[in-house]
């Protein structure tokens, strides 16, 4: 325990900067002026209009996701993570601001994006067998049968499920069901893979396996991954970058570079000095966010 509270040997590297936005001077995530990012979120705001009045879930979010990066979004519960993901995936229109993919505004679910949801049991078609679930998006795209069969077999192989193509999803364990959902996303060959707390509902041991699976697939496919989680350890272990969200109405609290070695290992990485420093830092930030710390206030105070 003492090591976790010792001073970090290396400072954590924050990539966020303070910018003028329509919602005042607030921290924003790393953006890439000049070069074309793969996915770009600009001044995104989402307000829900309800009978009981308006609820501002997301106030202002700005960050870019470059091609091939694995970034984790972490925030306290109720920090609008799912809202953000729905806006990025085009399932929901933002109130203000925009999401662009390759410079094109996202107005509906884009072709080159796949989403893995937390509720695997509700995201797989229970009336289709495992292979049919993976195959359906390809069938919908009009891919011919022999090509489809090959891609499905490859995807199932990649997630270690080649032995159960004929089973129904509900006959499998939770972890295996989520693997099917991942295989379906992999077979779709997206450029951006969005994952909404995909491992929140599986047990700890399965989760570790699935984390390594995601790292493996990410490296193999060179796909950009945006991984939403509330698990601090998971965000640091998985990501090249951790974007910390404030409590609702959400803005970016900090955009952190994860300078851990590229080869991650459940035992070694997690017991390394740097891992606990980063973990410590993210943990502190989340605790701050939970206590109602507002980054915009901090910015205002610094200027005063």
């Amino acid at each position: 325990m003492t090591s976790e509270h010792s001073q970090p040997t290396n400072k954590v590297i924050s990539q966020s900067s303070v910018q003028d936005t329509p919602d005042g001077r607030i921290p924003v995530g790393k953006t890439m002026p000049g070069e074309q990012p793969m996915l770009s979120v600009q001044n995104l705001k989402k307000v829900y209009h309800t009978d009981g009045g308006d609820i501002e879930a997301v106030r202002n979010l700005t960050f870019d996701l470059p091609k091939g990066q694995l970034a984790c979004l972490v925030g306290p519960s109720g920090s609008g993570k799912t809202t953000l993901l729905k806006c990025i995936s085009g399932l929901m229109a933002p109130t203000e601001g925009e999401v662009t993919l390759h410079g094109e505004k996202v107005t509906g679910p884009p072709k080159s994006m796949a989403v893995v949801f937390q509720e695997y049991g509700r995201s797989l078609f229970p009336w289709l067998r495992v292979a049919e679930n993976v195959e359906l998006p390809l069938k919908n795209q009009g891919m011919d049968k022999t090509a489809r069969r090959e891609v499905v077999a490859e995807a199932l192989e990649a997630v270690g499920l080649s032995h159960v193509p004929k089973s129904y999803p509900w006959q499998l364990s939770g972890g295996m069901q989520q693997r099917v959902a991942i295989a379906r996303a992999v077979a779709y060959k997206p450029e951006v893979l969005l994952m909404d707390e995909p491992f929140a509902a599986v047990d700890a041991q399965t989760r570790a396996d699935l984390e390594d699976l995601v790292r493996g697939i990410w490296k193999k496919l060179g796909v950009s991954v945006l991984f939403v989680t509330h698990d601090i350890d998971e965000s640091v272990y998985l990501g090249e970058r951790v974007i910390i969200l404030s409590s609702s109405p959400t803005i970016i609290q900090e955009d952190l570079l994860v300078d851990l070695p590229d080869e991650r290992d459940q035992l070694e990485t997690r017991s390394s000095q740097r891992f606990s420093e980063l973990r410590h830092h993210v943990y502190e930030q989340i605790q701050l966010a939970k206590k109602g710390f507002r980054p915009e206030d901090a910015v205002a105070n610094a200027n005063a």
């Binding site: 085009g90 399932l91 679910p109 994006m113 509700r122 998006p137 919908n140 779709y188």
Partner: peptide, 22 residues
């Protein structure tokens, strides 16, 4: 189911396939 409907939308399912498979 909302999640299932969202899943189909993210995979860009067309009208006919939505009716047939969803």
């Amino acid at each position: 189911d909302e999640v299932l409907a969202d899943t189909s939308r993210t995979y860009g399912m067309n009208k006919i396939n939505s009716i047939r498979y969803l």
